[in-house]
Design a protein around this nucleic acid. Structure first.
Length: 487
RNA sequence: GGCGCUAUCGUCUAGGGGUUAGGACGGAAGAUUCUCAAUCUUCAAACCCGGGUUCGAUUCCCGGUAGCGCUACCA
C-alpha cells in the first residue's frame, strides 16, 4: 500500500513551496490510489504558534485537495522516545553531557567541521548510566561510524544514486537535553510508525537523508523511497522568504488576489515538473493521470515575480496569471458567477444573483484574477458613475458637436428600442449610417457615457444588462457634460 | 571552510552523440473587431566556460566557474 505524507512545521504561514510539496504528494497518492497523510511536525514548542497552524489549514482548505489521515507529532512523544531508546540499546547512540551551545550556531566563526564532542562518544556505559541517574542532563546522539570507510547510500527517485562517507556526517542529536525528540528522530520515527512508503519533500532535505537512512536502519526499519523536489526560488536565485520577498510567498495571498485554486495548483505543478508532452493548461484529473516522479526535474525553479511589485499584476508570475485567466475562461458561467458574487458583495455592492449571472459572460474574457471583476464591471455595480473626462466622449476623428449629436440621437433611439442585442445593434448601426458616420464613432460616445471609460465590454450586451433606465440616465448626464464643455 | 546538489531562450520547460534545439508565458509586429479583451498568424530570443572521449559533442567523462542546500540539543 502506497502511503505518502505532508509534514509541515507550524512556524509560519503556508508557504508556496510547502503547498507545492503538498500537491506533489497528493498527486502521487491519487495517481496510485494510495493514502495521503497530513502530519503536523510540531516538536519545536518554542516556535510553534496557533496562528501558524490556522494559516496552514486555511491554505490547505483553500487548495481543496484534502487528505486521508491526520496526526500531530506532539501527541506521539512516547513513540519517539521508544525508537530513540531502541537505537540506544543497540549501542548506536550515546549520551552527550556537554551543555548545549546557545548562540553558537551562527554562520560566523571558524566554520570548522564539527563531528562530535570530545570524550562523550567513548564514555563507558557504567559511567554514562551513573551520570544520567545522578540527574545530569544530556542529549542523545547517534554514534556515526568513524574511520571504517562506511558509506551511507540510498537511491533518490529524482536525484538518483546518492552516497556519502560516514566520516563526513556529524554525530547528530536524537533527543535534546530536555528529553524532546529532534526533528530527525521524530520525523523518522513517525514515518516508520505510519508506514510511509514514499517521502516526497524539498531538496533542502537531500543531505539530511543520509542521517535519516541511518535512523531507519538503526531502528531496524527499511528506509522508504525518497524523492526530493527542486526548490522554488526568487528571481535573484535566493530562496523565497517572507522577510525578503513579502506576501508573494504565502498561499493566502494568491487566494485573496483572486486565484482559482485549480489554477494555482496547475501553476505550481509546472514548477519543477513536466508532463513532457507540451501540455500546460491542465485539469485536476489530467494532472493526476499525468503525474509521475520521473517527470520531476532537478534544478531549482524561479517564481518570476517583480521584486518591487508596483501593481498587483506584477506581484505574480505572468504564467500564473495566464493560467488563472485560462481556468477562469474554462469555468461554466454559473460557477464563475458564484465565485465572483461574494467578492462583489464584500466590496459593498448590492447585486443579485441574476444580475451577476448576466454580467459574468461580459467580463469572463477580460479578467485575469477574480478580483478584477471590481474594475472590469464596476459600472454595473454603481448607481452613479465616478467622474470621467468629458473629452473621452468625443469619437475618433470627431468633435464635441459630433459627440453631442450622437448622444442626442442615441437617446431618442434607445428610448424606444427593445433592450436586446440584435435590435440595439440594428437600430444604432442604422442611425450611424443615417448620420453619415462610422459605427465606431457612433459607439464610442455611448460606451463612455454608459461605462465611464473607453475600454469596456461589447456595447449592445452591456446596454442590455444595464437596462433602459440606467442607460438613458447616463446618456443625459453625458449630454450635460458635453454642453458644459462647450460653454 | 567541509560535504552534497544543480546548470537549455528573460522565466517555466522538452529533447538528446549528427536536430532548422521543440513548446509555453512574457515581448514585438500583423489580422479580426464597435473599444478593450479573447482568438489567429508571424518574428526576436537559449544549450555557463575549458579540456578530454569520438569521425562528430549542447548531450558522455573530468576540471573550472556560478547558484543553491546541509554543516543546530530549528524544521
Amino acid at each position: 500500500m502506497l502511503r505518502v505524507r505532508f509534514a509541515p512545521s507550524p512556524t509560519g504561514f503556508l508557504h508556496v513551496g510547502s503547498a507545492r510539496t503538498f500537491i506533489f504528494n497528493w498527486l502521487y497518492a491519487r495517481h496510485n490510489r494510495g493514502t495521503m497523510v497530513l502530519r503536523l511536525d510540531d516538536t519545536d514548542v518554542e516556535r510553534n504558534t496557533e496562528a501558524s497552524m490556522n494559516s496552514i489549514f486555511e491554505g490547505l482548505r483553500w487548495l481543496g485537495l484534502g487528505w486521508d489521515e491526520e496526526y500531530k507529532q506532539s501527541e506521539r512523544p512516547a513513540l519517539h522516545r521508544q525508537i530513540a531508546h531502541a537505537i540506544f540499546q543497540k549501542g548506536l547512540a550515546y549520551r552527550d553531557f556537554t551543555p548545549a551551545h546557545a548562540g553558537d550556531s551562527e554562520k560566523s566563526g571558524a566554520n570548522q567541521t564539527w563531528l562530535f564532542n570530545p570524550g562523550m562518544r567513548e564514555l563507558s556505559r557504567v559511567e554514562s548510566d551513573r551520570r544520567a541517574s545522578a540527574g545530569e542532563p544530556f542529549a542523545l546522539r547517534f554514534r556515526v561510524p568513524r574511520g571504517t570507510g562506511d558509506e551511507i547510500r540510498f537511491t533518490d527517485a529524482v536525484y538518483g544514486a546518492q552516497a556519502k562517507s560516514a566520516d563526513d556526517i556529524e554525530d547528530f542529536a536524537l533527543l535534546r537535553s530536555d528529553g524532546m525528540p529532534t526533528y530527525h528522530l521524530a520525523s523518522c520515527a513517525d514515518d516508520i510508525d505510519l508506514r510511509i512508503s514514499h517521502i516526497i519533500r524539498g531538496q533542502d532535505h537531500l543531505s539530511n537523508t543520509f542521517k535519516h537512512v541511518m535512523i531507519f536502519e538503526g531502528a531496524g526499519a527499511k528506509p522508504p523511497q525518497f524523492a526530493h523536489l527542486p526548490l522554488l526560488v526568487a528571481p535573484d536565485g535566493s530562496k523565497l522568504s517572507k522577510r525578503r520577498h513579502g506576501p508573494v510567498v504565502s498561499v493566502t495571498t494568491y487566494r485573496d488576489a483572486g486565484f482559482l485554486p485549480e489554477a494555482f495548483i496547475n501553476f505550481l505543478c509546472l514548477l519543477g515538473w513536466s508532463p513532457k508532452d507540451n501540455r500546460e493548461n491542465m485539469t485536476q484529473q489530467e494532472l493526476i493521470d499525468a503525474f509521475s516522479l520521473e517527470g520531476i526535474n532537478r534544478a531549482n525553479a524561479v517564481v518570476n515575480f517583480k521584486e518591487p511589485a508596483a501593481t498587483p499584476e506584477e506581484t505574480f508570475d505572468p504564467k500564473a496569471l495566464w493560467l488563472n485567466a485560462e481556468h477562469i475562461r474554462a469555468l461554466p458561467v454559473e460557477d464563475l458567477s458564484s465565485c465572483l458574487l461574494p467578492i462583489v458583495h464584500e466590496a459593498g455592492f448590492e447585486i443579485t444573483v441574476e444580475k451577476m449571472l448576466a454580467i459574468t459572460p461580459l467580463i469572463r474574457e477580460r479578467i485575469k484574477l477574480l478580483r478584477d471583476v471590481l474594475t472590469a464591471a464596476d459600472f454595473f455595480f454603481v448607481g452613479q458613475l465616478p467622474p470621467y473626462d468629458p473629452a473621452e466622449l468625443i469619437p475618433q476623428k470627431g468633435d464635441a458637436a459630433m459627440a453631442l449629436k450622437v448622444l442626442t440621437g442615441a437617446r431618442e433611439i434607445l428610448a424606444q428600442t427593445e433592450f436586446k442585442h440584435d435590435p440595439l445593434d440594428q437600430a444604432l448601426r442604422a442611425a450611424a449610417q443615417q448620420m453619415g458616420i462610422k459605427a465606431g464613432q457612433m459607439f464610442q460616445p455611448i460606451r463612455v457615457a454608459v461605462c465611464g471609460r473607453k475600454n469596456a465590454p461589447p456595447l449592445f450586451e452591456t446596454l442590455a444588462v444595464l437596462g433602459r433606465d440606467t442607460t438613458l440616465e447616463r446618456i443625459d448626464e453625458a449630454i450635460e457634460k458635453l454642453q458644459q464643455l462647450g460653454n
